[in-house]
């Protein structure tokens, strides 16, 4: 990391996890500020002006989803949530409330780092330039000309498939909930029709993946939504611009 170190606020009540985050993140050049409770966390986030917030959903004093809502009142900085298993419902609610990504405990430190990087990148370059080209693995998408290639062979997509793909590209590396995708691609009236999304995701995989049953690009986050894998070797690990 160069220049000024990115600032991260960790809102987590468990001291062991805080310690592990502090040591690990500090070693990777982040500046860390900690808070034990939701209320304290909101104050710390307000004073430290962080580049990213790591938030535990199971706080003793406040519902994590409420913390996100409060944060989203004044900042659009990325929020990564930490949740225990079997909390799919809370996880989805947190993502819908504006969280950017999630990690299920226990998680590996490399996973966390990867998520932080994706989130920070989106924060620096929000959205996607219409004139750029996206490339991941064997798939290349020319967003200006609205063309999609697999192994340099052009693939024909329907308008919805294309819209779905570009939406995923826009937030590549980030998890998108069913609700978010349905709203963005089909419109707010379709949020209950998640099977539409699944069917289209299926056809999209058949068109873009080498083995649709073992997808490399269009990943399923079971119970939550989908994620587009952004950094598939051997291609460049970031959007080419």
């Amino acid at each position: 990391m160069s220049q000024t170190n990115p600032v991260i606020v960790v809102i987590e009540d468990d001291p062991q996890i805080r310690r592990f985050l502090r040591t690990g993140l500090h070693a990777h050049g982040f500046e860390i500020h900690e808070a034990e409770t939701g209320k304290h966390g909101l104050i710390v986030a307000g004073t430290r002006k962080p580049d990213l917030i790591i938030l535990d959903l199971g706080l003793p004093d406040m519902d994590g989803v409420d913390v996100i809502k409060k944060l989203r009142e004044w900042t659009s900085r990325p929020v990564i949530i930490l949740s225990a298993r079997n909390m799919e419902v809370d996880k989805v609610a947190a993502l819908d409330a504006g969280a950017d990504d999630y990690l299920t405990k226990p998680f590996g430190f490399d996973e966390l780092l990867a998520r932080i990087r994706v989130a920070l990148r989106h924060a620096v370059h929000p959205g996607l330039d219409t004139d750029s080209v996206f490339k991941s693995g064997s798939v290349r998408v020319d967003l200006t000309q609205r063309r999609v290639y697999r192994d340099e062979e052009e693939i024909h997509l329907t308008p919805i498939e294309y819209r779905l793909l570009t939406t995923l590209i826009k937030y590549s590396g980030k998890v998108l909930t069913h609700r978010q995708l349905l709203t963005e691609v089909w419109g707010p009236g379709y949020v209950e029709h998640s099977h539409y999304l699944r069917i289209y995701m299926g056809t999209l995989r058949h068109k873009l993946e080498a083995d649709p049953a073992r997808p490399k690009l269009l990943l399923t986050e079971t119970g939550t939504g989908y994620r587009l894998a952004a950094d598939i070797p051997p291609a460049a690990s970031a959007p080419v611009r």
Partner: peptide
């Protein structure tokens, strides 16, 4: 149970990705 309609492929795919 939160039953919804899924393509079988997606279910199998989800597991295989996770256990990669």
């Amino acid at each position: 149970l939160k039953r919804e309609w899924y393509p079988i492929e997606e279910i199998v795919g989800g597991v295989l990705t996770r256990l990669q």
